[in-house]
């Protein structure tokens, strides 16, 4: 009886294998012809839209750039589709954020790096430049939101440029100049943000957001941050955390709190209501763009747009 069962399994597996082979053959044919068409331009795949924007500005029209995560997608909980897999496989080069932003996908990408040009844009950042999240003794976990510190983010341009040149050495001159120009743009942007934030009276420089995304921003631009939720959305904040935040807002006379595009605004509502009831109404501003760029084609759909929008929103809200 069991012998029959085993045979049946074996047969069905073989049958299925044959089916794959037939299907696979067809697919391979299709993609080969498709590949022939797009063979001209190399394909660069990025995970977040911020990285995608950076790439686009450096390669301009020399390569096609696709970001797997579109506007509004939370990178901590990105669920890959079959098409994403195909895109990664087809890519000539892949860039990801690293520092565990992409979660389990990161281990996969690291493995893939052995056989394909896959790079973390943050790979050259020293540990001392990063903000640590865990206590000593535990495996070090760092805050991944480096792109919100424009100066730090700009230092990643060099890495990207160097890797791109490895892909096609003939690009050296153009990539070099594009990268230099972008670096200048980002540094200019960095100064802009600094000025914008400095225009807020020092006593009012407190940024209250939904989740802990703005630590780098805080460090770079001299503004305090407070948030309700940690990095992981499974974890919960407690009642005390809400009341502590309310206390902070009331005692420091904070004028506005900021919701984020990729996090449910509901959680900050409790804080807002609490403040209202304590006769200290706060405005709800935003949504800030923390984990993803804004809508494609809109002014916030680029990195520059995102950062400017954030800076303006914050300064207007707190002044």
């Amino acid at each position: 009886m069991f012998a029959i069962k085993k045979c049946a399994w074996l047969c069905s597996c073989l049958l299925v294998l044959c089916l794959f082979a037939c299907q696979g053959e067809q697919k391979a044919d299709k993609t080969e012809t498709a590949g022939a068409k797009t063979e001209k331009k190399p394909l660069i795949v990025t995970t977040t839209s911020m990285i995608g924007d950076m790439l686009r500005n450096i390669v301009k029209d020399k390569a096609e750039v696709i970001s797997l995560m579109g506007p509004g997608v939370d990178p901590h909980y990105f669920k890959a589709s079959q098409g994403d897999l195909k895109r990664i496989r087809e890519a000539d080069m892949v860039f990801y954020n690293g520092i565990f932003l992409e979660g389990k996908m990161e281990a996969i990408l690291e493995k893939l790096a052995k056989s394909k040009p896959v790079y973390a844009v943050t790979e050259e950042l020293g540990k001392e430049q990063l903000i640590q999240m865990t206590e000593d003794g535990l495996e070090k976990q760092y805050d991944p939101h480096v792109w919100l510190d424009t100066k730090l983010w700009a230092s990643c341009i060099e890495v990207v440029a160097n890797r791109l040149i490895e892909l096609d050495p003939s690009w050296k001159a153009e990539i070099g100049s594009n990268a230099a120009a972008l670096y200048k743009t980002y540094m200019g942007l960095h100064k802009e943000v600094k000025t914008e934030i400095n225009s807020i009276p020092e006593a009012s420089r407190i940024l209250v957001t939904s989740h802990d995304a703005f630590n780098y921003f805080s460090r770079s631009y001299g503004i305090d941050v407070a948030a309700l939720q940690g990095v992981s959305t499974v974890t919960e904040f407690g009642l005390k955390d809400v009341t502590n935040l309310v206390d902070l807002i009331v005692s420091k006379n904070v004028k506005a709190v900021f919701v984020e595009s990729s996090v449910d605004p509901k959680h900050l509502n409790a804080v807002v209501e609490g403040c209202k009831k304590r006769d200290h109404p706060v405005a709800v501003r935003g949504p800030l763009l923390s984990d993803a760029l804004g809508e494609d084609g809109s002014s916030e759909g680029t990195y520059e747009g995102m950062i400017r929008f954030n800076a303006k929103t914050i300064s207007e809200g707190l002044k």
């Binding site: 901590h76 909980y77 669920k79 890959a80 589709s81 079959q82 994403d84 897999l85 990664i88 496989r89 565990f100 979660g103 389990k104 996908m105 281990a107 996969i108 990408l109 493995k111 893939l112 999240m133 865990t134 535990l138 976990q141 802990d212 940690g230 990095v231 992981s232 499974v234 974890t235």
Partner: peptide, 20 residues
């Protein structure tokens, strides 16, 4: 602040299998 919920560290994704 620990990023160690199971969705992050345990749960795989079938789409990534050929890459690993």
């Amino acid at each position: 602040n620990l990023h160690i919920d199971q969705d992050c560290v345990l749960h795989g994704e079938i789409a990534y299998i050929p890459l690993d």
